[in-house]
Amino acid sequence: MKKENVIEANQLTKTFGDFTAVNAISFEVKKGEIFGFLGANGAGKTTAMKMLIGISKPSSGTAKVAGFDVYSQTESIKKNIGYMSQKFALYDDLTVKENITFFGGIYGLSRKKIKEKRTQLISELGLENISNKLVGSLPLGWKQKLSFSVSLLHEPKIVFLDEPTGGVDPITRRHFWEMIYKAAHQGTTIFVTTHYMDEAEYCDRVSIMVEGKIEALDTPKKLKEQFKVESMNDVFLKLARNIE
């Protein structure tokens, strides 16, 4: 069964003056896929992602996200994607419930729907006893799980995760990946940008960006076979060495 593409990028390029931040990248991501978008800091990941989520206009090339054009239909894109980053997640000075209600509201969910989702989400995460506590007082791991759930509130087609599990303890990290697998299983496409190579091991397919170009794109397994190494970390090291 051939699944539909939810992201298609073709020769997507972004230049800032003389500097080419993203250099003609092409790739597609299928529905329900967990796609790892890897690269060192400054390799152009963030710039590429900004174009895909419709907050930065490409210099050239084409891309469609959730079926919408990144040049002309950015408003439709924003309605169909979720976003979670380590830096900005939830409001620390609002309670768990208030955060859910707020984010449900800005995505235009009805009051009834928000209430329903809120109850469901709180029970799924086992937050019943602390749903009226300020988010700022929760441990980091819980915050990240909650913020991932909040990014799924409006049932987006694609969720963009920006370095989602950095610094979290190993067990919470596993729980987090279980949540990602579940969302993917239910048909949500997951787009993970990260520079932690071991996060890449969990993805269905990964692309590795170096200096604005995609230098490798395949399943982690095939990449490891191709470079004859044991881990994605070593894949990256070899790739970086080859390019130098």
Binding site: I171, W177, H185, E201, Y202, T219, P220
Partner: peptide
């Protein structure tokens, strides 16, 4: 299917622990 696999293992009677670990 990773999600189904984890669910299945979590319900396996002889399970001690199961954690996703890369692929």
């Amino acid at each position: 299917n990773m999600y189904k696999l984890i669910k299945a293992l979590q319900h396996y009677e002889h399970l001690y622990s199961v954690f996703p670990f890369g692929e």
